[in-house]
Structures are given as C-alpha cells and as structure tokens.
Design a protein around this nucleic acid. Sequence first.
RNA 1: GUGGAUGUAGCUCAAUUGGCGGAGCCCCUGGUUGUGGUCCAGGUGGUCGUGGGUUCGAAUCCCAUCAUCCACCCCA
Length: 424
Amino acid sequence: MDIRYRRPRGTRDVLLEEMERWRWCEERWREVLERYGYGEIRTPLIEPTDLFTRAVGSGTDIVDKEMYSFETKGGEQITLRPEATASVVRAYLENGLTRQPGTLKFYYLGPMFRYDRPQAGRYRQFHQVGVEAIGSPSPVLDAEVIRAAVALFEAVDAGGLTVQVNTIGCPECRPAYVAELQAWARARAEGFCETCRSRLEINPLRLFDCKVESCRELLAGVRPISDAVCGACRDHHAALRASLAAMDVAVTEDPSLVRGLDYYTRTTFEISARQDLRQSALCGGGRYDGLVEQCGGPPTPAVGFSLGVERTLRHLYPEEFDPQLSRQSPVDVYMACLGQPAMIHALAHAELLRGVCRVEVDTTGRGVKAQMKSAHARGARLVLIAGDDELAAGNFQMKDLNDGHQREVAGDGLLAAVREVLGS
RNA sequence: GUGGAUGUAGCUCAAUUGGCGGAGCCCCUGGUUGUGGUCCAGGUGGUCGUGGGUUCGAAUCCCAUCAUCCACCCCA
C-alpha cells in the first residue's frame, strides 16, 4: 500500500493490546505513588532552552547533542523537555511554593524528547514516570525515594532487578576529588581513549562512564569518589544504607555510578534489568541539593528519580506486541443490523443498554454471518439482531453466544432481558 | 556522530544459475434465504522501498538514495 505519511523517526504508536498494558501500569503507579504521599504535577512539554542548559548542564550529552530546540515566531528559545526534574523545580519556584512547610512531593508521568539515534529500548519520544521530593536534606528521604522506585517495579510484577547506589559528594568535597582525578588522569592521558581524553578536560567524573576495557582497567587504579568524600557526605551515605537496610531494600555499591546530569549531589542510584541486555537501565535518580538555588530559589535540598516506561514495558513483555493479533475493544452486546432503518432502531435501544454495559451497533451493512463473526471476535456475550421483521414488530432476536440459544425480546423489555443475562 | 544488517501482499516470510512474482496467517464470498468458533471450496490484495545502470530479459547483478532494525556512544 502506498502510505503517504510515516511517524517521525524514533517515535511509536501505542494501541490495542499494548495500550491496555500501559494503562494497567499507569493505574498501579499512580496508586503506589499516592500511597507514598506524592501528588501529580503536569508541566509543559516545552520550556525555555536555558532551563535545561543550566540545570542539566552543558558538557552533558543531553544538552550538547540531544535537545529538540527551536526558536518561536516571537524569538523565544524553546526546547522540548528532555527530562522533567528541571521543569518541576521551575514550577515549584514559579508557583511560589518555597514557603510551603515540610517536604513537597510531586510525581509526573509523560513524554520526554531526546534527539538520539533510535535503538532497542531507546526512542526520541519516550515516557518517564518520576518523582521529585523537595525540601528535606535527610538521607532517610533518599532511602524512601529509592524504596518508592522499587515499589513501582513491584506494583507491575517486574522481577530480576538490581539497585545500585553511590555517593558523588557535595560542593564542599567534590571539587577536590575532581581535581585529584583530573591530575591523576592527565598523567596517564595517553592510556585513555579519545573521548576519555576530552572528557577529562570537560567533565572528569564522566571518565567512569567509559565502557572501553583499557580505560576501565586504568580507572581501577584510582580511588573511587565514595572513598574521597567529606565526613558529612560519608555520614549521609551511611545513614542511607542503614535506612535502606531497615526496609530490607537490597542494594549494591557501584563506585562508577556518576550519572550524566550535572545537578546531582551525594546520593545517586540506578535500577537496572539483566546486564546482558542493552539499555538495561530502567530507572535512575539521586539527590540534587543545589538545583533549586541554581534556578533562583532559596537553598533547598531535593531528591528524585525517573523511570523509563518503554524500557520497563519491554522488560515485562519482551516479545513485541502485534497489533494484528490484538483483539479490538471488547463489548458485552453486539447489535447486528440489516439495513439502515434497522440500524436506527438498534441505535435508539443501544443508548438505553449503554447505561449498564458496552454496546456495539454494527453499521457496516454486511450480512448477518459477518456480523456474528465480529460479535464473537469482540467477545460479546449477546447478539441482538435487527432486520425488517424485528423493526416492524418493534423487537429483537437475542442470541446468547455462550449456549447458542436465541429468543425474541420486545423492545421495551430489552434492558431487563440483557441485564438478566449479563447479571448487571 | 561511527559501524553492521535488512527492505517482496495488511502481517510473517519464500522465490534454485538473471527467465511466467509464491505460501501461511488475516480479510472477503459461498457451502448455511437472516446466525459465531471448527471444517471445506473459492476469491480480493504487489510501483519486488525509490531512482538510475548492465542485459534480449532484473525481485535477483552494479551505483546512488531513502527507510527500518541492531550495535557503538549515551541514557530512561
């Protein structure tokens, strides 16, 4: 077939069976997050470009090469959000919530956009569900946030996951470590790959992101950041571990977990599926105590995470959803109609039945056989047949597809007859 | 940004050496005057991704191009 239009690269259509799975997950996630005290927030899909370049940080891949940015007719610099934390912090400030007492807890669910080369589990428009808890510096909150992330996976019966945690220090202690790392790596620069050599000058911490074997071997010789942080950060991390242990959350330390966004402080964590799969990172997050202040607000500690919906669905259902094998939306009652007058007759009665169940009126003008077939395919329990005879008599032939029995039902007794069979 | 693979019916895929474009599933019709699943019979459906080239002849060989998938990279 000559299809004139195709979806843009890296985007997806979600329909039928897969759509049902999405809704199933979303319902459970909302319930879980509300039980942890989070309220939903919806922020614009577009934001000022500066918000991301400053919050996420230039030098990160997201900002340097993955943003959908454009100029509006009015000359504004706008970007399709590549992540939601910056937007939530912006909304927190813009709506004057800095004087709210206690910890503000937001959750969001929606599309993000990154101009990346598409791949298994990686899309240009993808969806995240995430939380931001703003206002508490406590490592106990970090632990609760991680526990909430784990709860999201439990809620949809996702197993086989691991939780990795790390600390990347604070503005007090990280600069010294970064300088130490940089000096150490510069002395061994010729041993590193090309990207590492450039990262070493721009963002030395991201040396830990490299997957090249020789780079990893070299890096094994430097002391990890978790050993170099200050006493306060060390205490924070110890309290995090103790809090997680109190909730029986099993985690592993991963000294190379530095994350690709600039705003993180102290706690970083990631939840991933089996390592042999690509794009195994299903969820990532951490603490970002400096971001609110950096965005113009008062110094305010915060912590959050985001979970990749497509990747999680892929982990839950590794075989692809086949739209052609999906069943169309199910109904309880299927009205088979012969001729337009009978369709109108059926339509009027369908309105009555729709007060108690799902009803499809077949308007295709096909033969009864074809309509019966569709009724079966849609999972209907009852078929109501309307033709010239029924129209004249003001009734319907009602067939129960479970046992094949069929009888005549008067129009004004239809609702009662349907309710009797469906038990509704 | 780099590398690899693949594009044939709505879907999954065949097509021998370059020689009449096929099968299964789906869909439609009939067997059954107006009645589902199973069965049987028949049928619709193709710019062989696109554009050039070689050739008597190209789905098949060559070039270009587009698209998709996978991997690197990065991340969710």
